[in-house]
Design a protein around this nucleic acid. Sequence first.
DNA 1: GCCGTTTTCGGCCCGACTGTTTTCAGTCG
Length: 608
Amino acid sequence: MPRLNDQVGELLQEYADLINITGGDAFRARAYEKAARAVGGHPEDLADLDVKGLQQIPGVGKSTAEKIAEYLATGRIPALESLRAKIPSGVREMMAVPSVGPKRALALYRDLGIASVEELAEAIRADRLAGVAGFGERSGEKILHGIELMRQSGGRTLLDTATELAEQLVEALSAVPGCTRCAYAGSLRRMRETVGDIDVLATAADSAPLMAALTELPYVAEVIGSGPTKTSVLTTQGIQVDLRVVPEEDWGAALVYFTGSKAHNIKLRTMAVRAGLKLSEYGLFEVDGDARKGAKGAQGAKTEGTKGAQGAKGAQGARTEGTKVVSATEDEVYAALGLPWIPPTLREDRGEIEAALNGELPDLIEESDLRGDLHTHTDLTDGLATLTEMIDTAAARGYSYYAVTDHAPDLVMQRMTNEKMLAQREELRRLADRHKKLRLLHGTELNIGPDGGVDWPPEFLAGFDVCVASVHSHFNLDRAAQTRRLIRACENPYVHIIGHLTTRRIGRRGPIDVDLDAVFEAAARTGTAIEINSSPQRLDLRDEDVLRAKRHGVRFSIDSDAHATGHLAYPRFGIGTAQRGWLTTEDVINAWTWQKLKRFLHKDALQK
DNA sequence: GCCGTTTTCGGCCCGACTGTTTTCAGTCG
């Protein structure tokens, strides 16, 4: 079960979608979309708020607050239900198909009775779209193609795949003659756990050679669209890449714009408008009275005069309107709005702009701050590399401490025994002098049983330098049992770190049903760290849960969970999640000196 | 529907690309 705030957020988003589909007021729909985002990201539990309290959430007014209160009281929102009665859920689902939005979804339903993605595909194959207004010859083909893609890729790409591709693209495009700057932007630069597409930004006086170079790359399978400022392609892996080329002097404004997020940009633009400015990907402009009216008119609906304004505002006009204030660097753009530069990982409109205004941006942890890795495996269990190979690779990363934490015997398939574990410990101690600067820790990854117990009795556990404890089975316990087992694991004096808390595998397995706040409370109370598992398939905890855990006073351990030497580089991705959760070095135990970490690992002594 | 150091009414972020439209709506980010 998702947390209540997310549930309500999803319902409000559904309501907004249904308003859009039924042709309701677009601004009203947008108001509900905004409220949905605000509610989903609100730190306080909605259940604790009354109508007055709900209205304190930015973007939630009287009407939305009453709907939420009604849902909390009765579990129903009658206004939403009456819209649901008019529009089958499959119609809303069709909006997920590329090039199908609310208008086309409605037209397809109203004119042809199509009420699901499956029916849509069938109708196109049967050539039934021809008569519907707005659908020409190519529309069906394009929609069908979109449906196929959706099914193939499941939508989103993992962070490591996307990062690798983006770095290749930047390298290739940077080498094109005339390219003066090139970098990736978008959700990848913000280090979201998955990305829908890859945005690459470049500067050049002439965009044509860059556009051509992109379309000719060997791993580009298909050109979706191409113009003077933007080209979109699909790679052989099915990942969409958008390349934008802007003049060098507009680099900063364009980088802000294409890095996003959408919500962050909207807030920046609103700040700009209040200051009599206009922010676009071409820069921050001063706007005189007339031009401002024109810009607003072009936005609006069907009033007289707006057509003229829009007509006069051709593709050229939009770029030259007003006097440019700044746009060369991100620093300049933020500074002109009265803000310090904001790290991309914070740009989600989760309070970073307010924090920036107050000079309270966190000093985010960086990859170079990590002094060690506290969750790794060897070929003694399911790892691929030997103890010495793992240690040598860790030493090359410049760590000052490193823990080997192979699986414990309750994970039966790993065939662990006391003897094997003790033999590994002896070997590890023998290797202590192999790298003078690297302190080796002998640990284990325990299994949290369904009742919260772990492998081995206390006297054996006391022999380890560090114990990670994780859930590896019984994923389907009910919420109460799941919560109980994790709290009990936190309360174990020999458990220092809870590994991959929710056990999700991105795109493959959902999180277990657990009361995270209760577990965070227990972790903070008992001095147990929660892991940020850096494996791109896991990234567990998620960034928003990291934010919540931090509010409980939880400490974190950013680990690789490496099963091969190459995996020791994973903390790069975990750091992205940590930054998105606003963490500093103070919050992360493996950014601490050994002296400080050593005290933390003596949890059992503190509790005795 | 929300919101207010120009406003309690009248705005609401902004632009590119596509396809079918012959001047622009829809979609997307």
